[in-house]
Design a protein around this nucleic acid. Structure first.
Length: 283
DNA sequence: TCCCAGGCGACTG
DNA sequence: CAGTCGCATGGG
């Protein structure tokens, strides 16, 4: 089985990275192995200190998916500018933002709106079982993430069994609209952040929060600063005391928070957001 | 039982 | 224009 030996200049925590809520298709076994599906490949991986052992993908894929090629230490230095965010970095050391497949991320975060993580995971698992392809791996069965055709060819009603709630028509519309996945990906890739964000929010079921998550987790746009209720609470308590915490988060207020995040934490504010978010429960 | 997640569209001030 | 509410669903 292939092994990657991480150098001291490559801080990485597999557990932090896979359990912080950015991805929904990974499971950790009692024995320390993580199993997951990315697009159409089933993967198993575990970390023992500086050793990463894995199966189901090649070295290049693992390096790219887990962003092992990015200089995490320098990224952290760029936003580590006060004791509070510093504590979050200490607590979640080695957390990296994964490079998710773009289509999969778009659908996942459309499903994720107004939901909690266990529900999101169940819904995504349901659409993969229903519309993906069966993958046999290590004596177990997994399902690939379905493509646009897979999701729209059976009609909107076929999605009912996945219990997506009012997100069902959004998913169906998106699957029908994006006939050329790669063209869509190239288009968003080519746009500067604010334009990419506008483009993303044109999609059915994608508001500010989902757009920022997708740009951060799939398009490598680290200036995205997704504001969910947790981040809003943290920002209100530690950075923006004048924020009205009782009112619902309108678009104006959302923009005020994300612009503050961008100005204060800098060009990698999305990374700062992830550390603050991941540290929320451990604090 | 009720509140929460936070996109959309219809509604209201 | 900006804020509020119901929508479908399930976890806490």
């Amino acid at each position: 089985m292939p092994v990657i030996t991480l150098s001291p200049e490559t801080p990485f925590s597999l557990d932090q990275t896979l359990s912080c809520g950015q991805v929904f298709r990974w499971d950790r076994s009692e024995n320390g192995w993580w199993h997951g599906v990315v697009d159409d490949r089933a993967i198993k991986i575990r970390q023992d200190k500086e050793r990463l052992r894995y199966e189901g993908a090649d070295r290049q894929f693992i390096d790219n998916y887990f962003s092992l090629d990015s200089d995490l230490a320098s990224i952290i230095v760029s936003f580590d500018r006060d004791p509070f965010v510093h504590a979050a970095v200490e607590r979640c050391r080695g957390l990296r933002i994964i490079r998710q497949p773009k289509w999969e991320c778009l659908i996942s975060y459309t499903i994720a709106t107004n939901s909690n993580i266990p529900t999101i995971r169940r819904r995504i698992a349901a659409i993969c079982e229903q519309f993906g392809s069966r993958i046999r791996f290590g004596g177990r069965t997994f399902y690939s993430f379905p493509g646009p055709d897979d999701l729209c060819c059976k009609g909107a009603d076929a999605l009912s069994c996945c219990k997506l709630g009012y997100r069902q028509p959004f998913i169906f519309r998106t699957a029908c609209e994006i006939t050329d996945r790669e063209a869509w990906e190239r288009k968003v890739d080519s746009l500067a952040f604010e334009d990419a964000r506008k483009e993303m929010m044109q999609r059915s079921g994608i508001g500010p929060k989902a757009a920022d998550c997708i740009l951060l987790f799939a398009f490598g746009k680290f200036e995205a600063f997704p504001v969910d209720v947790w981040i809003r609470r943290i920002m209100q308590e530690h950075y923006l005391p004048d924020l009205n915490a009782s009112r619902s988060l309108g678009r104006r207020e959302y923009d005020a928070v994300r612009h503050f995040g961008r100005e204060y934490f800098g060009e990698y504010c999305g990374y700062a957001q992830e550390y603050l978010f991941a540290a929320r429960l451990e604090g």
